[in-house]
Design a protein around this nucleic acid. Structure first.
Lengths: 209, 209
DNA sequence: TTTCACCCTGTCCAAAGGTACAATGTGCAG
DNA sequence: CTGCACATTGTACCTTTGGACAGGGTGAAA
C-alpha cells in the first residue's frame, strides 16, 4: 500500500513520514505518473497553496490516476469540501491532521469509505434533509408515469427541447407534447421549466407555495 | 470488537457469521442493552422488515446505545438513506451485502468514516452541492451578469415565468425579456430551461455538447 | 371478445418565449 | 463634458410550447 503526498511546499513532510514511514512526496500531480509502480495506494493532495480556481482541476487530475484521493486543505470549508468530493475525491481533511488521524483516514478510504471532519459530516447530513425532502414527495408521483412519459420527463430534466426529444425517441413532436401534457397533469407542474426543476429535486415557487 | 446484528428475521444470520464468526444476533433493538459487555463494537440494524414509519425510531434507539450504527435495508433508496443517516447512523448498505463488503464497512465505520453505496454517495454529493454552492460552476460567467440580470436569472432558476418575474421586479415583461436575452448570451445557454438547470448546477445536453 | 391503458399522430389555436431594431434616461469614470 | 455601461421600454415578428378536439393501433387482462 503506497502513500503518495502531492504538495508544492512539503512543509508537512515530517508529519507525513511519521504517519507512513514509506510515504512518498511529490511536488506536483504530474509527477504521480512516474512516482509509483505498485498497484494500490492513496493520493494525498495538498491544496493549501493552490489557488482556489485551480483546485478542482488538480483534484480531477489526481482522481484520473485511479487511486483514492484525499484532499488536504488549510482551511476546510464546507462549500469547498463538497465541491472537491464531487470531483471524485473520497476524503477531505485538514493539512495539519495528526499522523494517527491520517492513518485512520487511510483505513477508511482504502475500504471504500468517505472521510471528512465530523462537523462537516454533520452539516452534510443536516443539509440532506432539505435537499432530499422534495424528492420524497415526488417519488410517489413519478411512479405514476408510464415508461414513455418517464423518458420524456428525463429528457426535459436535461434541458432538451421538444424537437430534440422527438428525435431522440424517434417520435413526432406532437407525441412529445401529448406525453408532456400527461406528465404535467400527473406531477402537478405547470410547464417544462418546473418539470425540469422538479425532476432534479429543486423546489420551485409553485412547489413552495 | 463486537458485531451486533439486530434483526427481527435473521434470515441472513449465516452470512453475517461468515463475515464475523463471533457476531451476535439479537431480535430487537431493546436486546442490545443486555447482549453485550465489551466496550467497542458496531450495531448492524436490519430494517428490511420494519415498517417504514418505524425505521427512524429504531435507528434512533440503536444510535442511543453509543456504538456506530450501520443500517441494512432491502431496497436502498436515497431518500431513506439520507433520512436514516441523519438520525445518526454512519452506514447504509444492502441487506444482502456479501461478507467481504460487511468487513470493509466495519473497517470504515470503526475508524470514523461513513459508508454508503458509491452511487448514493455520488448522488448525495451532487445534491448537497446545489444547496451549498448553488452557482459555483458558473461562478465565472455569473460574475459577468449585471445585478439586474442576476435577479432575473435567480427567478428563472426557481421556475418563475416572465410575467411573474416582471411583477416581482416591478418592470415590464419586455424588460424581463431583454435581460433574459443578455443572460442567455453571457451564460451560453439557449433558453430558460437550460438557464434554470445551469443556475442549479445541473448539466444539460447543451453543456455536455 | 371486449375493455382498457398506453402509444402514436393529426389539425387548429392561443399563450408564452425569444429575437431584431430602436430609443430614452441615469449615473459614473475619464 | 463625454463616452460608456446599464436599465428600461416599445413595436414587430418568429418560434416554441401547451392545450383542445379527434382518432387509429396494440397488447394484456377480464
Amino acid at each position: 500500500m503506497e502513500q503518495l503526498f502531492v504538495s508544492a511546499v512539503g512543509g508537512m513532510r515530517e508529519r507525513w513520514l511519521q504517519a507512513f514511514p514509506d510515504a512518498k512526496v511529490a511536488d506536483s500531480v504530474a509527477a504521480i505518473g512516474v512516482a509509483t509502480s505498485s498497484a494500490r495506494g492513496i493520493v494525498w493532495l495538498d491544496v493549501a497553496n493552490t489557488p482556489p480556481e485551480l483546485r478542482d482541476q488538480r483534484v480531477r487530475d489526481a482522481v484520473a490516476f485511479g487511486w483514492p484521493v484525499v484532499v488536504m486543505a488549510a482551511t476546510p470549508g464546507e462549500s469547498e469540501a463538497f465541491r472537491l468530493l464531487n470531483q471524485g475525491a473520497v476524503g477531505y481533511c485538514h493539512i495539519g491532521a495528526v499522523p494517527e488521524q491520517l492513518r485512520e483516514i487511510a483505513l477508511v478510504v482504502m475500504h471504500g469509505g468517505f472521510w471528512m471532519p465530523p462537523e462537516l459530516m454533520q452539516r452534510f447530513l443536516a443539509l440532506s434533509r432539505r435537499v432530499i425532502a422534495p424528492v420524497y414527495s415526488m417519488e410517489h408521483e413519478l411512479n405514476e408515469l408510464t415508461s414513455r412519459e418517464l423518458m420524456v420527463a428525463e429528457q426535459v430534466a436535461h434541458g432538451a427541447s421538444n424537437r430534440e426529444i422527438a428525435a431522440a425517441l424517434n417520435i413526432t413532436e406532437r407525441t412529445v407534447k401529448a406525453h408532456l401534457s400527461a406528465i404535467f397533469e400527473k406531477l402537478g407542474v405547470r410547464d417544462r421549466v418546473q418539470l425540469a426543476l422538479a425532476m432534479n429535486n429543486i423546489p420551485t415557487y409553485a412547489t413552495v407555495n
